[in-house]
Computed example of a mutant assay.
Amino acid sequence: MALGQNSGISCRDRVRGCLLGGALGDALGAGVEFLSLDEIRRVHGPAGVRGLTAAYGVDAPITDDTQMTLFTAEGLIRASVRGRSKGICHRPTVLWRAYQRWLATQEHPGPPSDTDSDGWLAGQPLLYARRAPGNACLSGLRMPRMGTPARPANPTSKGCGAVMRSAPFGLLPTSPEAAWTLAAECAVLTHGHPSGYLAAAAFAWIINVVADGHTLVAAVESALGRLASERDGGEVAAALRTALAVAADGAPTPERVEFLGAGWVAEEALAIAVHCAAAAPADPWAALLAAVNHSGDSDSTGAICGNIVGTMLGEGALPTDRLAELEGHTLVRQIADDFVLEMSGAPEISDSWGEATPAWFDRYPGT
């Protein structure tokens, strides 16, 4: 797969769109994550949230959803750097270390003085904000051993914490199957229930196919074909089928969204995001608003929906005025641009042997 090869949207526009769209949906839902729909309407009016609001004492804040997505992207960059500079790389282990760096941001008030030795992302003060991180993410990453498909962390957990961080796997210049496999292997670092890791895998597959220029409906239908080969894939498949069926009924409404669930668990979060994006395919702002105005995990459903619509339509389709309000938008763009540089094999970050230049290796140590 070559990102965006089947459309006029550039690779960088899709990657930026995916990460910025996710951050925008995250921020839209942050202030209403724990409110019922009735409470949302009571606070924000009958139409619910219509624009970015404050939460955690910050205007338009990103939460753990965006934080972990950025560390996923950083981990994939570092895995690629390691692979071409060291000649060998076990990518789930590199991602485990990336998530350990995220865990450290949740356990310390700010970056330690020696973060320069471990790449630049861990030195960003913004990422040390603690904004309701998921219990399974925290407990899984605190385990003394890394979860694996054979011995997954939290084998009964199917919360949406693995799904909401998995979009970057789909942005890799690889096949949908490879994106699926890596997303599943990295989901079990924290979420071991089949619906938890298969929803993350299906999400990566969908992003990969959409990034190649195909429609969202085609991407979901192909993911359903892949799920059919999984013994435990029925729950995720049923949720996705329902999401498409409800989207065919017309524009997304809170009532249609709530028919799909609350989004606290993986298959519901993915279904809500897919439904909103599919029901408003040409209007990313309408899709994002629909994805957060419901009783449930609004920031996660908003983030996943934002990843989808941003990949579909590119950064240029997202509202520029809203992006300018978004906390950390410059940081998100930087990670997106660095991801594109590394995955495209840009000559400015490579020496004559194809290995990372010293400056790039310092920025993304291959460990």
Rank of each mutant, 00 (worst) to 15 (best):
Q5N: 01
N6M: 02
G8H: 01
S36A: 12
V43K: 10
H44G: 14
H44A: 15
G45L: 11
V49M: 01
G51V: 07
A55H: 02
V58L: 14
D59G: 09
A60T: 02
I62T: 03
I62F: 00
D65G: 01
E74Q: 15
I77S: 10
S80R: 13
C89D: 05
R97I: 13
Q100N: 02
L103A: 13
P111Y: 08
S113A: 15
G119C: 08
L121H: 02
A122W: 07
P133W: 06
P133D: 00
C137D: 15
G140M: 05
R142V: 04
P144T: 13
R145E: 14
T148S: 15
P155K: 15
T156M: 07
S157I: 13
S157T: 04
G159Y: 10
R165W: 07
P173G: 02
P173Q: 13
T174C: 05
A179Q: 09
W180R: 12
S195G: 07
Y197A: 10
A199S: 15
A200V: 12
A201E: 06
A202M: 03
W205M: 01
N208R: 13
L224V: 02
A228L: 07
S229M: 11
G234K: 10
V236N: 05
R241S: 09
A243F: 14
V257G: 09
F259A: 15
L260Q: 12
W264C: 14
A273H: 11
V274A: 09
A282F: 05
P284V: 08
W285I: 05
A287N: 10
N293G: 12
H294M: 05
S295N: 03
G306N: 14
M312D: 01
L313S: 08
E315L: 15
A317S: 09
D321A: 09
E325A: 12
L326P: 03
V332E: 04
D338S: 10
L341A: 09
E342F: 02
G345M: 13
I349F: 07
W360P: 01
F361Q: 08
D362M: 07
D362H: 01
G366T: 00
